[in-house]
Nucleic acid binder design. Structure first.
Lengths: 133, 133
DNA sequence: GTACGTGCAAATATTTTGCAGCAGT
DNA sequence: ACTGCTGCAAAATATTTGCACGTAC
């Protein structure tokens, strides 16, 4: 019943995907990452992007976010941090607020099971959209 | 530029979908709701379920949740409350913890824009799955 | 050399939509 | 009667997968 860990290879594609993700703070979609990588590797396929995003997520090198849309966004910053989602334009930003262990501990008492971590998202209207309104 | 509010009709289908959603605390998927409603309305279509879930969400009568899966789950309890997601079996439970306005206020100072509300999810292993391991 | 990874294309899965007739108000 | 809503089926979207070949180790 033990799950066997596969040997992972750092391919050119995987390295580039990780590089793109670490080089932005826009929390991009799989398709956006695909377009960026394609500029330097025109033959890469979207399937490869998805496969790598899954591998990278499983190994804890990136995070997958699904905040109220039909598609996933990815985050190359794995320090646990909070997000702010703009209800008007859909943009996702980072929130520079200290993580609270206390919140997780509080929940531990209110839940049947073991709480490992928490995720907190703020929703509202971002600065740009407030101006346009 | 004003968005005009449409008159909504409480059809048999819409009423039943809402009833199903309010009658469970399992945070079901659109498909599960479809199967339940189908037992009493065999001719209802999945498209109608999706259309109604959207209308009900827009009018604030239900919540849509997307917690790390490829599909949405829905919640008939709109008192803002927190959720606990089991990483092992995917089950979503409610967390009976008092909502914290303080958290939203704290974020307001750390974000460029207007923060309206927050969502907090806890992740871990639920009681059932802890036993099985 | 081995076996994991890739590109391609087809398959899935979930959600949305056009349309003609139905039904709530 | 007016206009929103339904069922049906097809379309759109996002993601996954089978396969034969390629490549990191």
């Amino acid at each position: 019943m033990e799950s066997v860990q596969k040997a992972r290879r750092m391919t050119r594609q995987r390295r580039k995907i990780l590089e793109v993700l670490r080089g932005t703070d826009t929390h991009p979609t799989a398709d956006w990452i695909f377009e960026q990588v394609r500029r330097v590797m025109p033959k890469i396929s979207l399937g490869t992007v998805y496969r790598n995003l899954r591998v990278l997520k499983e190994s804890g090198e990136i995070l997958e976010l699904n905040y109220g849309s039909t598609y996933s966004r990815f985050d190359g910053n794995t320090d646990n941090h909070y997000h702010f989602v703009c209800l008007s334009c859909g943009k996702i930003g980072d929130v520079m607020l200290p993580l609270s262990d206390q919140i997780t501990r509080q929940a531990a008492g209110a839940v049947d099971g073991r709480v490992e971590f928490h995720r907190l998202e703020f929703y509202g209207t971002c600065g740009d959209c407030t101006i346009k309104q």
